[in-house]
Write a protein that binds this DNA or RNA. Sequence first.
DNA 1: ACCGTGACGGCGG
DNA 2: GCCGCCGCCACGG
Length: 127
Amino acid sequence: MPRDTEFSKRVLMVVRRIPAGRVASYGDVAAAAGRPRAWRAVGNIMRTCNAAGVPCHRVIAAAGQLGGYGGNLGLKRALLAQEGVVVRGSRVRNWRVLRWPSPVAPPETSPAARASRTAGRRRTRDD
DNA sequence: ACCGTGACGGCGG
DNA sequence: GCCGCCGCCACGG
């Protein structure tokens, strides 16, 4: 791990706060750590600081992409699955909802838009 | 103090 | 929706 920098420590704390079954993007973590534009650096920190009792597997890339895990993506998927986070292909299913800290509802979730979207569909799917 | 690096992000093609 | 390009920032050499 890149020496105990204030930033790195904050990042690790943030990651520790991610509940099981939820996921956050590197950008989310960066923002939560107070540096919204430092997602890249967050990646570096995760790279070096993984095995340290931090649920780093809950940190994924933007748009629900899996991101990396020191070349051991299989493990990452397994860990996530163990917590109920399903990965389809290389994307987290239901990512919109599982996202942490803000499970923000889609901007255009107005009743009308929703109705039109689900109109020809049998059942509503996730995200 | 400068330069390259990367478990990234967004947008345009 | 995938691919590539450019932009971002903390760290280490």
